[in-house]
Structure formats: structure tokens, C-alpha cells
């Protein structure tokens, strides 16, 4: 229904007039509105979304924690004092003190471990997301834009990777590494996780490449690289960003799961997943050693999911 467009977009600029005879009359209307890109419109929407504000504050907090853990605690996550093992209960009154959240079975400060554990989770989450976005966008764009055999080949490849169960695959891949650093985990998850982005990117590119503005650029004689970079990528980016931010929470959960299963980061690394695994053994005696790192994982995953949701609403209102 043609009338509907009016509700969604600013339609007319009342000041603009062009007279019938083609003599140009420069507008004398109200003050001209500012240039507004679609990105700035999205930002305008985001700032008013409480979901976005809450999740953004949490994410900033987690980022700061992962970059400068020293700001939050003076205790070291590795200092084990077996004498404290028996005093393991949290002292809820001692805010931010090493004994605030109690000690684990080896007498290490749980608060310190929670603070230092953020780095592993956030690095893996952000690292995997960046890696899959680059790989997925590249493969999806090539497949979507060139079509034909290229598309058939890349799409089948995507299907093959999609057929591997994500966690099981990661388990197998990581098992073959002895020294599992953060980077190894990122590579393993990215190796298996790019398919989702690739599919979204391919779909977006196929739609966009038929748009008249792409045809117009071709008609002007634009090169393929110009069309891809100037026209297709900026328009395909919105759905890709949406999928990527929502997936980020999933990667953090995946890292925690793998660490819990003992194939994530090595035993010496400080990570929430590892702590949950160790806490499980004391479930009866000291449940907080399990619960506190689990809650941290949940809060982090939830923050990123909420963030992704808010971004999706702002970038693509139709998806709601």
C-alpha cells in the first residue's frame, strides 16, 4: 500500500521547490534538516533503547575487567593458600576484598579468579567473532556475487562444515592439541563457526546484487571490486553485524563449555569454564565455587545476546 511508506520514512522536504518551467528556485523553507545516514538513524534508535543501555554498560564493564583486572582486585588468581581452603565460605560484607566471594578448594580467591577469568572468555568471544565475520563475509560475498560454479562449490563447502556438530567438532579438533592457548581455541571455534555468517552474507549479497543501484554502477562501467566494496559490502553489513553480535554470546558459552569438558583452555589458564568444572567436585561442600563462575558466564552471554538483539532492532526493524 503506497500510503504506508509515509509513516516509515521522512518523505518530503517542504522547502524544496522546482518550478514548472525548470527554473530552479532554491528553497526558502524551514531550516534544512541535517544529513542523516542509515547508521546514524540506527544509533539514534539504539540510544533510546534501555535494553541496549543496560547491556552496553555491562559489556563495557566486562571489557574493562578483562583488559585491566588489576583495577578490581589486588589478589592474584593463582596464589593458593591451602590454609584458607577450610574458610571457603564467602564473606558477603567484604566488597571487592579477596575473601569477598570466598576461596576455592586450593585456597585461591574466587573473586580474583572471576575477575581474571573474564579475559579468557572475552578474548575468545571477540576473537572468534572477528575471525568468523571476516572468513564468513568473504566466502559468502564471493559465493553470492559470482554465483554459478563458484557458488555451488562454496555453498557445498559451507554445508559440509555446517554438518559438523559445533561442540563435538571443536572437541575433536582441540583434543589433537597439547598446548591449548587462547589462540588455539579461537582458531578451532572460528574454523567451525564461519558457516552461519557465510550463509547470511551470501543471502544478503544475492538480494543486493539485483538492486538497481548495483545495476546502475555496472552501467557506469564500475569494476567488480568497486561494486563489491562500495555498494554490496556496506549494504550487506547490517545483517552480518546482527548475526555476529548475537553469535558472540554463543562463542563465550562454547568456550566455557569446552573448558568445563577439559578440552578448552589448558589447566593452568584462568577461565570461568575451568572453574565451573573444578567447582563441580565440591558441589556438596562449597556450592559457591560452582555457582559464582557459572553466574558470570550467564551474565556475560546474556549481555551480548541483549546487545545483539538491540542492534538487530535498530539496524533492521523488519526482522522484529
Amino acid at each position: 500500500m503506497p500510503d504506508k511508506t509515509v509513516e516509515k520514512k521522512v518523505e518530503a522536504l517542504p522547502g524544496d521547490t522546482a518550478s514548472t518551467a525548470g527554473v530552479v528556485v532554491t528553497d526558502a523553507g524551514p531550516a534544512p534538516e541535517k544529513a542523516r545516514s542509515l547508521w546514524s538513524d540506527a544509533w539514534h534508535d539504539l540510544r533510546r533503547n534501555p535494553l541496549f543501555l543496560i547491556s552496553a554498560v555491562l559489556i563495557v564493564f566486562l571489557l574493562v575487567m578483562s583488559i585491566w583486572p588489576g583495577l578490581f582486585t589486588s589478589a592474584s588468581p593463582r596464589d593458593a593458600d591451602l590454609a584458607k581452603h577450610y574458610l571457603g565460605k564467602p564473606n558477603w560484607g567484604h566488597f571487592f576484598a579477596p575473601d569477598w566471594l570466598g576461596y576455592d578448594v586450593q585456597g585461591r580467591s574466587i573473586y580474583a579468579r572471576v575477575v581474571y577469568g573474564a579475559r579468557a572468555s572475552i578474548t575468545v568471544g571477540v576473537g572468534v567473532t572477528i575471525a568468523v565475520t571476516i572468513i564468513g563475509t568473504f566466502i559468502g560475498m564471493i559465493a553470492g556475487y559470482f554465483g554459478g560454479w563458484t557458488d555451488t562449490l562454496l555453498s557445498r563447502l559451507t554445508d559440509i562444515f555446517l554438518g559438523i556438530p559445533f561442540l563435538l567438532g571443536a572437541l575433536v579438533v582441540l583434543n589433537s592439541f597439547d598446548n591449548r592457548t587462547v589462540w588455539v581455541v579461537i582458531m578451532a571455534l572460528a574454523f567451525l563457526g564461519w558457516t552461519q555468517i557465510a550463509r547470511v552474507a551470501r543471502g544478503a549479497v544475492i538480494t543486493i546484487k539485483q538492486a538497481d543501484y548495483v545495476v546502475a554502477a555496472k552501467a557506469l562501467g564500475a569494476s567488480t571490486s568497486r561494486i563489491l566494496v562500495r555498494h554490496i559490502l556496506p549494504n550487506a553489513l547490517a545483517p552480518i553485524i546482527v548475526v555476529a553480535t548475537i553469535a558472540l554470546g554463543g562463542y563465550i558459552a562454547a568456550e566455557a563449555t569446552l573448558s568445563f569438558l577439559g578440552v578448552g583452555l589448558g589447566d593452568t589458564a584462568v577461565s570461568w569454564g575451568g572453574d565451573v568444572a573444578r567447582g563441580r567436585e565440591q558441589l556438596r561442600i562449597a556450592p559457591h565455587t560452582l555457582i559464582i563462575p557459572s553466574v558470570m558466564v550467564s551474565i556475560t552471554v546474556l549481555s551480548f545476546l541483549m546487545f545483539g538483539d538491540a542492534v538487530r532492532n535498530a539496524l533492521d526493524p523488519k526482522l522484529r
Partner: peptide, 17 residues
Amino acid sequence: QELYAIKGLPPNLTRIP
């Protein structure tokens, strides 16, 4: 000959003159 054209544009419904 030349078409008669109504000048200007339909109004913005958020700011009707």
C-alpha cells in the same frame, strides 16, 4: 506542448502546512 506541473512536493505528514 509542455505539461502543466504542480510545483513542489506533497507535504510531510508530520509537518502539514
